[in-house]
């Protein structure tokens, strides 16, 4: 399909001829780097604490080996969760910006049909989500390398798994944004709504559940809970694989620290968030293919 190729090319040019993508890439890299530095530093700090004399005694009593725990992983998971808000915003601007600047008219006039125009957008934004994801994991890794000793460094296999989760989360967040930006095509409005939701609203719900003692499992099925579960469950799995004995109550606490409180296994969380992406994009798609452009 030649026309589909052409539309993909057009969408690529739309992105590369304005500054938004690198305007969001800069904070993406900075926050990821900062998160990496903190994660590595925090890991080192915990190691120094757990290898102090009193802590050694305590861990001997409990039969655990905290000096082998890679606390840095938890910070890495948290960092990725926060940083994927940038590709989310980037995705949300895809359609909302075109409606705002009214270039959507020309976009639809030059496409065979609206479905192809939307599909081209989705493909190109998925690619850009991957670019954000790769930049994120690279910056996080740099930060961790700079601040942690060899004992806190995740292994090669760990990094591969982290990179996979990070790129996947970044792509899915971008696509979720594309859908919602088409569903509520007001650039400022949709960005504020998404940030409020992912940073504040859902966390408040989760906090409320925790205070009232209700199981947080429901959170794992919500958009933020599931996408955080994708990365959070990966880091908890990686942590546990090398941690030896960890007390049962400790695991729940670890999940909360990693941002995977109440979340399902990483692949199931990924599937749940993918369902949210499908719903968001499906809604945006329906809206944009029906809407009168006046």
């Amino acid at each position: 399909m030649g026309s589909m190729n052409d539309l993909v090319q057009a969408e690529l040019r739309k992105i590369t001829t304005t500054g938004l993508w690198w305007g969001l890439l800069i904070p993406t890299v900075l926050v990821a780097l900062g998160g990496g530095l903190l994660s590595g530093g925090f890991g080192q700090l915990m190691i120094e604490f757990t290898t102090s004399a009193e802590a050694e005694q305590l861990s001997d009593v409990l039969g655990v080996t905290p000096d082998q725990w890679k606390f840095s992983l938890l910070g890495i998971g948290r960092t990725i969760n926060i940083v994927t808000l940038f590709p989310l915003v980037f995705g949300a601007m895809a359609v909302a910006n075109e409606i705002g600047t009214r270039t959507i008219t020309t976009t639809f006039l030059t496409a065979q049909n609206r479905a192809q125009a939307m599909l081209a957008k989705l493909l190109v934004y998925a690619l850009w989500g991957a670019i954000y994801g790769i930049a994120t994991i690279a910056a996080v890794a740099l930060g961790v390398v700079l601040t942690s000793g060899s004992s806190q460094m995740p292994g090669i296999g760990d990094w591969a798994m982290l990179a996979l989760a990070c790129v996947l989360a970044s792509i899915l967040m971008t696509m979720f944004g594309v859908g919602l930006g088409a569903l509520l095509p007001n650039a400022a409005g949709v960005v504020v709504l998404l940030i409020m939701y992912f940073l504040v609203i859902e966390n408040a719900v989760q906090f409320g559940l925790r205070l009232s003692g209700t199981p947080e499992t429901v959170v794992g099925f919500l958009p933020n809970g599931s996408v955080n579960g994708l990365t959070g469950s990966v880091v908890v799995d990686l942590f546990m694989a090398k941690a030896g004995v960890v007390p049962e109550e400790g695991i729940d606490f670890l999940r909360i620290i990693a941002g995977a409180g109440g979340a399902q296994a990483w692949w199931l969380s990924g599937l749940i968030f993918f369902a949210w992406v499908a719903a968001s994009f499906g809604g945006g798609w329906a809206r944009m293919t029906q809407k009168d452009i006046t």
Binding site: G2, S3, D6, L7, Q9, A10, L12, R13, K14, T17, T106, T107, T110, A111
Partner: peptide
Amino acid sequence: RNHLRVYTAAIG
């Protein structure tokens, strides 16, 4: 020019 090149691509 970039505006037009978006649409030369789209139109083919």
